[in-house]
Amino acid sequence: MDQGYVHNVVRLFEVTKVFKLGSNLVEALKGIDFAIKTGEYLSIMGPSGSGKSTLFNMIGALDKPTTGKVFIDEVDVAQLDAYELAWLRCRKIGYIFQTFNLIQVMTAIENVTLPMIFAGMHREEYMDKGMELLKLVGLAERYNHKPSELSGGQQQRVAVARALANDPAIILADEPTGNLDLSTGEEIINLLKQLSVQRNVTIISATHDIKMLNVSDRVVWIRDGRIDRVEERDKLKISVGEVA
């Protein structure tokens, strides 16, 4: 690949999303144009109800836009068939949710290895890698615990390990610190930042946690279904200062 060429790992083209609530039509996204570069740590900020989570679902190919196009690695997601979409979710993207969304009936190690089973790995391979990932997030001794036997922060760390299972190019985090206390939230943020630096993983995180700003390369502010403004990291501190 050419030096200096910056690859857009995600590109959104005039994306809109309309939900039907009873007889009302609610426009959650009103036309989003945006590109995210490889290796970037991007935060999507905005008040609740601004369309953050909807945008998150579009980027992660978890939902279809009403109009417009989503490109992941310059491939139009709408053109993918069920197999290719599943492959994309399995291999390309790792998801982290506010509510952790671990499979409640499975242990930590089973949760972490599930995406690798889908990816067709052999038992030895995925058990080794699963333990390695749990070690990375500091939960190796708790591999045999069910989510209900873990604290919120620990569950979220299992979710981070699971998101990393197939070495995805993108990690999507929807309010990853939303259900955690301050210090645990900070731990998760630092873990994500570390991953982005060490593994060149693109991290896209929807949040309204101000702590996220310090580690982000870019911040996108969403308001009322539109991009309000985009701020680069170096200019960020000034504007945060202004707000405070």
Partner: peptide
């Protein structure tokens, strides 16, 4: 939903 996020087919 979680299964499908992790790459499960229908």
């Amino acid at each position: 939903g979680t299964f499908k996020c992790l790459g499960a087919l229908d």
